[in-house]
Simulated scan of single mutants.
Amino acid sequence: MTAPEKYPPARMSRRNLLRGAAAGGVLLGGITLPTTAAHAAPAPRCYTRAEWSARPPKSATTVIGAPDHIVIHHTASPNVTDYSLAAAYKVQHWIQDLHMDTNGWIDIGNQLTISRGGYLMEGRSKSLSSINNRQNVMGAQTANHNSHTIGIEHEGIYTSANPTTALFDMSVLTCAWLCTTYGLDPHAAIVGHRDYNATQCPGDVFYARLPELRDRVAEVMLG
């Protein structure tokens, strides 16, 4: 399966970069960004694997090239009301145990996780260092598309409920950071898990808010 046809190429094309530069900026989803603002999105606080006491992977993690799409997931776990950092660590352990012990994967499948309290956490081993080097790690979060995507798990189930404000706001900041790092257009790069695989993920409510997510990410990138 190829990337969803309804989305244009996610990367800012050389033509668009040149057109934007000639006009004093870079084109981003139809918006002209000032050249000084194209890299305005800072890295949000990300809690490392060491901080949440991750289990070591069963085998070596493979570092790969930069992704061209950001895949939005939900964990389909209960919509807890404990928004603490301790609760964020707890769900991260649950995800890793599920992925390693039940799914049989070498490690947690996704590169990043956002808790309902809005805490961003590193997922698969070497994810954070790879992002900082404009690379990625081979995950197990989107079947048949792990070689070119990076995945963000969002704690909770959003088939009929809305994400918490803290979670959605952190998703905006995280996607803006990733789009800045990889030179991606958020209107093309940010997709739902269901765009690639037969799944309800990330839930009907969250999926319906992806246009809002893309627009808000573009606004953050404007600086």
Rank of each mutant, 00 (worst) to 15 (best):
G139V: 00
T142V: 11
L167W: 02
P163T: 01
T174K: 01
C179A: 09
S160G: 06
G151A: 15
T165L: 14
T159S: 10
Y158W: 10
H145A: 12
A166K: 07
L178I: 04
A140K: 10
P163C: 07
A143L: 14
G156E: 06
N146A: 01
N144C: 09
I152K: 02
W177M: 09
S147M: 12
T142A: 15
Y158G: 11
T164A: 04
A143S: 13
Q141H: 15
T149L: 13
S171G: 15
V172T: 00
L173P: 00
T164F: 02
I152P: 00
T174I: 00
Y182H: 13
A166L: 08
I157E: 14
H148L: 14
Q141P: 04
P163H: 07
T149Y: 09
S171A: 15
Q141Y: 11
M170S: 10
N162H: 11
A166N: 05
L167T: 00
L173I: 01
Y158L: 10
E155D: 15
V172E: 07
S147T: 13
L167S: 08
C175Y: 15
T159F: 05
T142P: 03
T180D: 09
T159E: 11
T180V: 00
T142C: 15
M170P: 00
C179F: 04
T149I: 09
T174E: 06
L167N: 08
L178D: 04
H148G: 03
T149D: 08
T165E: 15
A176I: 02
H154P: 02
S160V: 07
A140N: 14
G151D: 12
S147V: 09
T180L: 05
M170E: 11
V172K: 05
T164C: 03
A176T: 02
C175L: 13
V172P: 01
A140Q: 13
L167M: 11
C179K: 03
N144E: 12
A161T: 08
T165M: 08
Y158S: 11
